[in-house]
Simulated scan of single mutants.
Amino acid sequence: MSLAVTVVHACQRAGRGGSPTAVVDEARLSAAERCAVPVAAGTSHAVFISTGEHGEGRPAVSLRFFTAAGELPACGHGTVAALAVLAERARTREYEAVLRAGGRTFLGQATGGDHRYEAAFDPGPVQLRTPVAADRQPVLSALGIGPEQASVRCRIASVGRPRMLVRVPDRQALAELTPDMTRLRDACDRLGLLGCYVYSTPSPDGRAAARMFAPSIGVPEDIANANSTACLAAHLAGHGLSALEVDMGDSLGEPSTVTATTRPGAVGPLVRVGGTAMIIEEISLA
């Protein structure tokens, strides 16, 4: 069966980089065949889309996300990529849809045209907790962060799946990280973590850099990770920051930026996260 794939670079920075993502219409494929799509397309992730009609006249779209290692309940840059493709197909400069993924329903929007879109969505409520030292230390050790780095701060954040947020002093400390991926995968597996999102101390205006290491799902380092940035935004909302711009992908030669905003909600901050997506090409997989 021939499979049509749209390759989108999600969360670009100034028209460059971004995370290559395969967007595919839902098809009769096994889990193994779905996992093979990002490998064949040369992307880290694939998102499968199925469209319908919502009761309020807006399109309803179901999303499923896969890496080479298996299915994910959520993928932020995959959602950004899907919204760009859906907006392009709708031939409208302002697109809105009801999205369904990971057992939840939420809104997504995209604006733009000519293959380039600004997309954002509601990632859902973020749960935060502080890890105990026995859980924190194996992850920090695998990252190469010693206990002498007193500025290190850690939180466990969950939106879909939990991951550890780790703060380092600055961008230089972030760039110099050389994690032991085998040890990091073992530590994350033991704790049931998706991976580890390491970020530099944000500037007063909310600018930061980050690297997402997720060897447990077959992605040693992610070019852009929107859901983890949403988790960081929820964490920092309690410290007076309501808007973030997080640079990622520089260590991989793919400059990316994820944006997030927060506002007060009844049971915690309400987050919107997104980025710029560029539709690059259509390919066919045999």
Rank of each mutant, 00 (worst) to 15 (best):
R190M: 02
R190W: 04
R190N: 03
R190D: 10
L191Y: 06
L191C: 08
L191F: 00
G192E: 08
L193T: 06
L193N: 07
L193K: 09
L193I: 09
L194A: 12
L194T: 05
L194F: 14
G195I: 02
G195C: 08
G195S: 07
G195L: 09
C196K: 06
C196F: 06
C196P: 00
C196L: 03
Y197V: 00
Y197D: 01
Y197Q: 06
Y197F: 15
V198I: 03
V198T: 03
Y199W: 13
S200C: 08
S200R: 06
T201G: 02
P202H: 11
P202K: 13
P204S: 13
P204A: 14
P204K: 15
P204L: 14
D205W: 10
D205R: 15
G206D: 11
G206W: 12
R207L: 13
R207S: 13
R207C: 13
R207N: 10
R207K: 15
A208C: 11
A209M: 11
A209C: 15
A209I: 06
A210F: 11
A210M: 11
A210R: 12
R211Q: 13
R211M: 08
M212P: 04
M212D: 05
F213D: 02
F213P: 01
F213K: 03
F213S: 05
A214F: 00
A214Q: 01
A214I: 00
A214H: 00
P215S: 10
P215E: 08
P215N: 10
P215V: 07
I217W: 10
I217M: 12
G218W: 06
V219E: 09
V219W: 02
V219P: 01
V219N: 01
P220R: 07
P220V: 05
E221L: 09
D222S: 12
D222E: 15
I223H: 07
A224D: 05
A224S: 15
A224V: 01
N225S: 15
A226P: 04
A226I: 03
A226W: 04
S228C: 12
S228I: 00
T229D: 01
T229K: 02
T229M: 06
T229V: 03
A230R: 04
A230P: 01
A230Q: 07
A230G: 12
C231Q: 07
C231N: 14
C231S: 13
L232Q: 06
A233I: 00
A233Y: 02
A234T: 07
A234S: 13
H235Y: 14
H235G: 00
L236S: 06
L236D: 04
L236T: 05
L236M: 10
G238Y: 13
G238D: 09
G238A: 13
H239K: 13
H239G: 00
G240F: 09
G240Q: 10
L241G: 01
L241S: 08
S242N: 15
S242Q: 14
S242H: 14
A243R: 15
A243N: 10
A243W: 06
L244I: 03
L244Q: 12
V246S: 12
V246Q: 08
D247G: 07
D247K: 04
D247Q: 14
M248S: 14
M248L: 11
M248A: 11
M248R: 02
M248D: 00
G249K: 09
D250H: 13
D250V: 05
D250M: 09
D250L: 14
S251H: 09
S251Q: 13
G253K: 11
G253P: 08
